[in-house]
Amino acid sequence: MNNNKNNGVRQGITGVTSTVGNLTGGLLDTVGSTVGTLGRGLGGTINSTTGTRVAGDSLAGLTNGVEGGVRTVARGVEDAGKAPGK
């Protein structure tokens, strides 16, 4: 009986941490994607208006790196809330 109580509590905690992890991970992923998209857009605009690709491509590369790093963190946060073995 005690084992069943522990399993129920563990499942409840896992459900809460999974929900919080998924929410946080989703928000981080959205922020990272927004930063990446903005950087690519601004980079393209800079390239078009200046006639040089150095500044625009550098900005796009930087924001792509931020996007990838944030995406990795977001996945880690989401995975942290999963039950062991799932």
Results as ranks from 00 to 15, higher is better:
Gly8Tyr: 05
Val16His: 13
Arg53Ser: 14
Gly39Glu: 05
Gly51Glu: 00
Ser58Glu: 12
Leu23Cys: 05
Asp29Pro: 05
Asn4Gln: 11
Ser33Gly: 13
Gly21Gln: 05
Glu67Asn: 03
Asp57Ile: 07
Thr52Arg: 04
Gly69Phe: 07
Thr37Arg: 13
Thr30Glu: 01
Ile13Tyr: 12
Thr19Asn: 08
Thr30Tyr: 01
Asn47Pro: 09
Thr30Lys: 01
Thr24His: 02
Ala55His: 13
Gly44Ser: 09
Gly69Glu: 07
Gly8Val: 00
Asn7Thr: 04
Gly69Val: 08
Val70Ala: 03
Gln11Asn: 13
Val9Lys: 14
Asn2Ala: 12
Thr45Leu: 13
Val16Phe: 15
Leu28Trp: 07
Ser48Gln: 13
Gln11Val: 14
Thr63Ser: 04
Thr30Phe: 03
Asn6Ser: 08
Arg71Phe: 11
Asp29Gln: 11
Ser33Asp: 07
Asn47Gly: 08
Arg53Asn: 15
Ser48Thr: 06
Thr52Ile: 03
Gly32Gln: 02
Gly69Thr: 10
Gly65Pro: 00
Gly68Leu: 08
Thr50Gln: 08
Leu59Thr: 01
Gly51Phe: 00
Val31Gly: 04
Ser33Phe: 04
Arg53Tyr: 14
Arg40Leu: 14
Leu38Trp: 03
Thr72Pro: 00
Gly68Phe: 08
Gly25Leu: 00
Asp57Glu: 07
Thr34Pro: 02
Asn4Cys: 06
Ser48Glu: 13
Gly44Lys: 11
Ser48Ile: 06
Gly32His: 01
Asn22Ser: 01
Val66Asp: 02
Leu62Arg: 01
Ala55Val: 15
Gly32Ala: 00
Thr37Gly: 14
Val31Met: 06
Leu38Arg: 01
Asn3Arg: 06
Ala55Asn: 12
Arg10Asp: 08
Val16Leu: 14
Asp29Cys: 10
Gly36Tyr: 04
Gly21Met: 03
Ser33Val: 04
Asn22Ile: 01
Gly68Arg: 08
Gly15Pro: 15
Thr50Cys: 05
Thr37Leu: 15
Gly39Phe: 03
Asn64Thr: 15
Ala60Gln: 02
Leu23Val: 12
Val35His: 06
Thr49His: 14
Gly25Lys: 05
Asp57Cys: 07
Gly8Glu: 06
Glu67Ile: 00
Thr24Cys: 05
Ser58Gln: 12
Asn4Trp: 07
Thr17Arg: 14
Thr37Asn: 13
Thr45Pro: 01
Gly25Pro: 02
Thr52Gln: 10
Thr37Trp: 09
Gly41Val: 08
Arg71Ser: 10
Gly61Cys: 12
Gly32Asn: 01
Ser33Met: 10
Gly43Thr: 07
Lys5Gly: 10
Ser58Thr: 13
Val70Ile: 14
Leu27Cys: 00
Thr14Trp: 13
Asn3Tyr: 08
Leu62Tyr: 02
Ser48Lys: 12
Glu67Met: 04
Gly41Gln: 12
Gly21Phe: 03
Gly43Asp: 05
Ile13Arg: 11
Lys5Val: 15
Gly15Phe: 15
Val31Ile: 06
Arg10Tyr: 06
Ile13Thr: 10
Ser18Thr: 11
Asp29Ile: 11
Ile13Ala: 15
Gly41His: 10
Asn7Glu: 10
Leu38Phe: 04
Glu67Gln: 04
Gly12Gln: 12
Ala55Asp: 13
Asn22Gly: 02
Ser58Trp: 13
Asn3Lys: 07
Thr72Ile: 10
Leu59Cys: 02
Arg10Gly: 05
Val9Ile: 12
Gly61Asp: 09
